[in-house]
Simulated assay, not measured.
Amino acid sequence: MTFKYVDKPEVFMGLRDKETRCEFCNQQKLCFNADAFYGEDEIESICPDCLATGRLYERDSYTCQGDLAELKRQLQDRNPDLSKAEVDDLADQKTLELEKTTPPLITWQDWDWPCIDGDYGRFIGYGSKPFYTQLSTETDAQTLFEKSIYYALADDSDADELWKDVPQKTVNDYKTSSDYSTLFYVFKSLHSDQIVTIWDAE
C-alpha cells in the first residue's frame, strides 16, 4: 500500500478485522471502515486499492479535512509571484487529493490535517520519547517535540506538561495506540525534515 500523505498505512491505520465487500470494486477484501467519513454519501467499506486510485472522487465522501486556510497562506508565502486565484486553485487541488485518496486516521477529536512547507504533511507515526529522539538531529527530543506542536494547538498546549504524557515506549502500530488516552500524531514535510505534531485526547 502506497499513499502520498501516509506512511505504512497497513501498520498505522485500522483495517476491518474481517474481509468485507468494497463498495467500489465489489470484491471481498480487508477494507478501511468508512462509517466515519465526511460528506453526504454514506459508505461502509473501501479497500486500499480503490482508495489509492481515487475512487472516492466518484462520491460526495472524503476521509479527512485539510487545513486549507493555512495551506493557502504557506503557498502564497512560498510563491509570491502566483495570483490569489492560482494559489486557491493549487490549494484546492492538493486538498482534494488529500481528502479523496488518504487512508483515515482514527482520532477522538476532529481536527484539520496539518500543512508543512506548502503542502500537507505525511503522517509518519505516533509520537513517543524514543521516536522524537530518533527524529532529533540538531536538538534534544523534548525541544524538538515542543517546537513541532502545530500552530493551531500552540495556544492551548502546555508543552512541558504534554511532554510528560508522551509515551516512554515506541507506539508501534494502531493496536498499540489504543493503550493510551493521549496520542501524538507526527507528520513530516514532503520537502524537508521538518515535522509537526498534533495531539489528541479522549
Rank of each mutant, 00 (worst) to 15 (best):
K129I: 09
T2P: 01
N79C: 06
P104A: 12
E202N: 12
F123V: 04
L96P: 00
V87E: 04
F131A: 02
Y126P: 06
I43W: 03
F184G: 07
D60L: 02
S178G: 04
D81T: 14
P103F: 05
I198A: 08
T139C: 14
S45D: 13
R73G: 01
F37R: 05
L30V: 04
D81S: 14
Q74N: 08
R73T: 13
K4E: 12
L190V: 03
D110E: 15
L82R: 15
A154C: 07
G118S: 04
L51D: 08
C31F: 00
P103A: 08
L183N: 14
N172A: 12
L82M: 15
V186N: 04
S83P: 01
Q168T: 10
G125R: 02
F187H: 15
L96T: 13
A85S: 14
F32N: 02
Y132Q: 09
C50Q: 03
T101Y: 09
F32M: 02
S136Q: 02
V186E: 05
F24S: 08
F24E: 07
S192P: 10
G14W: 01
F3N: 02
L90H: 10
V6F: 13
C50G: 02
A69Q: 11
K169V: 09
F37D: 05
L75Y: 10
S178V: 04
Y120P: 05
R55K: 15
T182S: 12
E58G: 07
L90C: 08
D89Y: 11
Q27W: 04
L162N: 07
A152Y: 04
D49P: 00
I46H: 03
C31D: 02
Y38D: 06
T139D: 11
Q142N: 11
R122W: 01
M13P: 00
